[in-house]
Design a protein around this nucleic acid. Structure first.
Length: 377
RNA sequence: GUGCGAUUAGUUCAGUUGGUAGAGCACCAGAUUGUGGUUCUGGGUGUCGUGGGUUCGAGCCCCACAUCGCACC
């Protein structure tokens, strides 16, 4: 049984704390979920993920795992938890976003989406039904409904049409979910996804429809896909009163540290984003005083710790000059250190957010933090 | 010692019939939001080996020198 329980709320914003319970452990919210697309959070040991970083739940991706290693291997491995040896909760994205972002050749119909693999060009089709079956085999604690991720600049008629498609898929997805059982002895749930692009009325309509199928939580998708940040915040404000307080809210694919705090202030409980890991591989590290491009020449002789305020061991064990050198030299260790730091930073960010919500001073803290976080050093 | 070839950005090299120089990589900077260890965008950073000469004008033509490479005594 997977359920969400709200535990505290902020008097000056929509921020709240809660606990999402799964058979693999309890997840305190608000939470950030590191992305582990193909069964690994790139460059980070699971040991460090759970201990040094403090991750409570990680992601996997149905599109990627379906293509590689494939369902046969995943089934024989006993599911993704055993395969990658992660004992905590796992959430899998359905792959709808990858069909949108990766596949050059794709055809979306009411039946499902046909696409060609980005690996070998082979043809495949996702339907709501086989997407449930696939995520059963992967064995995620939280499965995501198959949706169409509508571009942020779509016109209203496209957005409305796209939403209808997502809604039809959701109904079939939910039906299939009810007809099937978990394969590995622990509970699974699924989150419907609210689409509707940047149109408030479509968003509300999408939420009301999706809520009929929501169990422990619901997701907000189709944001941070090209629309201005202010519009994203506006959509969250439109949705907050529509979604009951007893559902966990997951804002998909977001975002910067500032985005996350603003999201929390608007009632969001769960976030995932490639930013802390992908940007880490490209030399960017996040700190309370803003983002640093470690490739910049000015760090070459800065022998101070990577981040004096950081919670990860790497922050105090290694210097900026050393990390800079590793990036310039193209060493994989650079990506590992930066990923470790950034994920620890993101988890500390949400940990402090939870603490401030519980103490009742979240809003004031958030406002000053956002300013500092948005700087470039 | 002689002959031939080379010498242009950090580097490897382009550079038309002579009109004050370009490319790849490197480097410098920026982007990155349900991840293809990517990718994209912007930036030229130069005493054209040195010194003379011809010419309105030389990276290019002529002379000398220097350095490097190859070949031959």
């Amino acid at each position: 049984m997977i359920k969400f329980t709200k535990t505290a709320s902020d008097p000056f914003s929509r921020a709240r704390t809660g606990v999402l319970s799964t058979d693999h452990g309890e997840i305190p919210t608000p939470i950030f979920m590191p992305v582990g697309t193909v069964g690994s959070v790139k460059g980070v040991y699971h040991r460090d993920l759970s201990q040094d970083i403090g991750a409570r739940i990680i992601l996997g991706n149905t599109y990627h795992l379906y293509l590689r290693p494939g369902l046969d291997i995943l089934r024989r491995a006993g599911g993704l938890h055993k395969f990658e040896h992660w004992d905590g909760p796992i959430l899998t994205d359905s792959g709808g976003f990858q069909v949108f972002s990766l596949s050059k050749i794709r055809k979306i119909t009411p039946e499902g989406c046909k696409f060609s693999s980005h690996i070998d060009g082979s043809r495949h089709m996702f339907t709501p039904e086989n997407n449930v079956d696939t995520q059963r085999i992967i064995g995620a604690d939280i499965m995501m409904a198959l949706d169409e991720c509508c571009p942020g600049d779509a016109d209203r008629s496209y957005a409305a049409k796209s939403l209808k498609l997502t809604q039809g898929w959701l109904e079939r997805y939910s039906k299939r979910f009810a007809e099937t059982e978990p394969l590995y002895g622990y509970a699974q749930t699924f989150f419907p996804i609210i689409q509707g692009c940047t149109y408030p009325d479509l968003r509300v309509e999408a939420a009301e429809h999706a809520l009929q199928f929501a169990q422990a939580g619901i997701a907000i998708g189709g944001l941070a896909v090209g629309e201005p940040t202010e519009v994203m915040y506006e959509m969250l404000e439109v949705l907050d009163p529509v979604i009951p307080q007893d559902k966990a809210r997951y804002l998909m694919g977001v975002g910067t540290p500032a985005n996350i705090l603003e999201g929390i202030a608007r009632g969001v409980d769960m976030f995932d984003c490639v930013m802390p890991t992908r940007n880490a591989r490209n030399g960017m590290i996040f700190t309370w005083d803003g983002a640093i491009n470690m490739r910049n020449a000015k760090w070459a002789d800065d022998f101070s710790p990577i981040d004096p305020l950081g919670t990860s061991f790497v922050d105090h064990y290694y210097t900026k000059a050393y990390l800079h050198h590793l990036f310039i030299a193209g060493e994989m260790f650079a990506a590992m250190l930066a990923s470790e730091h950034n994920l620890a930073f993101y988890l500390e960010l949400v940990r402090q957010a939870r603490a401030h919500i519980e103490e009742g001073d979240f809003t004031a803290w958030k406002n000053s933090a956002v300013q500092r976080l948005s700087q470039r050093i």
